[in-house]
Amino acid sequence: MATENFNPALRTPASSRPYPKANRGYGKRSAPDQRPVHADDFTLLPERERYIAGYVDHLPDGAAMDIKSLARSIPLYGQMAVGSALRALGVAGHLRHAQCRIEERGQVRWVTRTFWSRTARDNEWWGAFLDAENNRATQEAAASTAPQPPPRVPAEAPVPQAGAQPPAPAPATPAGPAAQPASPAPVPVVPQQRTPEPAPAHPSPAYLALAQLGRLEPRLALSAADCTVLAPLAAQWFTRGVDTDYLTRALTSGLPAQVDSPIGFVRRRLNDKIPPGLPTTRTPATPGTPLRRLMVECTECGTPGHPEALPDGLCRPCRTPALGPAPTAPADPPVERDIHALVSTLRDLMKTP
């Protein structure tokens, strides 16, 4: 006897292979204050969106959430269907795409994060949540760029050498007017030795780029003191948008057969080959206005913007349905043609060689 399954939600099959992991900084991020998993989750969604939502809900944080990765893991639907389903889930209040600004090693990049909520949320809740995430990202960036105090090194007590005898007590001299103070023994003069300058506790990207020059090109081997002196000049390159590879190629390309003074040669190239500063296309922020590090991304076209400018996760062009062509006046009825004359003309053309 056949039994009918009254559960409207499709059961997501267990994957036999591990979930695709996104690159560091990307991937799924679970929103807080979600209700526990229940059998009637996503029951109000259509069949396709309900199936994809159940699969996404089981993904761990950090899993890949791009359309291609989801389409490879879900055999029932292709990329077009997955993209349409993600857009519908964004309108239903289950997910938002956002671009987060990350600064690492003197470089700035934007990563795409997908915030997921099993519980459907409205636009006001998503706006407050994304503003809180933006404030948290701003505080983390400020804490990472704040100068760290140097570590305090406790003073070490002199350690007695093994086998050394303790100093003998000085003989007591009788107190009296005849007692004369002993003349101090001459102190031998020891020439002062130069101590090597220690490397910084938190080396900058410019210092690290200069330190590895000697390993890539022995003719440009620099000491720790040389790297400390040249680090401010190399830091000016990073402020103009170049990376470590660009700086290394500029310093090591076209070397002469012999370099007598590596520090002088590198200093000359740092001053002569510094790249030009590229003009930025962004509007400079007014003083006192913090830089926004989290921008909501349109689920359909990927256009970034503020949360209030993208309700339901869609920008205005994607949210407004495309209008059809403007109605035109009805065309005039076609002029009656002489069918017999037309057929006669066609026959004559067919007879022409």
Rank of each mutant, 00 (worst) to 15 (best):
Ser344Ile: 01
Gly288Glu: 06
Leu95Gln: 01
Ala64Val: 00
Ser253Trp: 05
Ser183Ile: 13
Arg219Asp: 11
Ala128Gln: 14
Tyr26Thr: 01
Pro154Trp: 04
Pro196Gly: 09
Gly277Ala: 12
Ala170Met: 10
Ala155Arg: 08
Thr345Arg: 12
Tyr55Ala: 03
Pro13Gln: 11
Thr252Gly: 09
Tyr207Leu: 10
Leu208Tyr: 02
Ala285Val: 14
Asn271Thr: 12
Pro325Asn: 07
Asp260His: 08
Arg113His: 05
Ala157Asn: 09
Val153Ala: 09
Ala211Cys: 08
Ser117Ile: 01
Glu297His: 03
Arg105Trp: 10
Pro200Asp: 10
Asp40Ser: 15
Asp40Ile: 13
Gly93Pro: 05
Asn135His: 14
Gly241Ser: 02
Val37Glu: 03
Leu208Cys: 11
Thr195Lys: 10
Met295Cys: 05
Arg113Met: 11
Pro13Glu: 04
Thr252Ile: 15
Pro262Cys: 10
Glu104Thr: 07
Arg136Asp: 14
Arg249Pro: 03
Asn23His: 07
Ala257Pro: 01
Pro147Trp: 02
Leu255Ile: 09
Val159Trp: 02
Thr303Leu: 14
Pro36Ile: 04
Thr228Trp: 02
Ser30Glu: 10
Phe265Gln: 10
Gly277His: 00
Asn271Ser: 09
Val266Ser: 07
Ala157Leu: 10
Ile52Thr: 01
Ser183Pro: 06
Pro262Tyr: 07
Leu251Ile: 12
Ala224Pro: 09
Arg29Ile: 02
His58Ser: 12
Pro171Phe: 13
His306Asp: 12
Ala211Asp: 15
Ala155Ser: 08
Lys68Gln: 13
Met80Arg: 11
Arg268Ile: 02
Glu133Pro: 00
Ala132Glu: 08
Gln192Ser: 12
Ala206Asp: 01
Glu336Phe: 06
Ser223Ala: 11
Gly288Leu: 04
Ala211Pro: 03
Arg121Lys: 07
Gln192Val: 15
Leu346Ser: 08
Gly27Leu: 00
Ser73Trp: 00
Pro169Trp: 06
Ala235Val: 02
Pro321Gln: 11
Ile74Arg: 01
Leu220Ser: 01
Val242Cys: 09
Leu130Gln: 00
Glu47Gln: 15
Ala143Leu: 06
Val259Asn: 04
Phe115Asp: 00
Thr283His: 12
Tyr55His: 15
Pro330Phe: 08
Pro8Asp: 08
Arg35Gly: 10
Arg121Phe: 01
Arg347Glu: 04
Asn134Ser: 15
Thr119Ser: 15
Asp122Ala: 13
Pro32Gln: 10
Ser30Trp: 00
Pro275Gln: 08
Leu222Thr: 13
His340Glu: 03
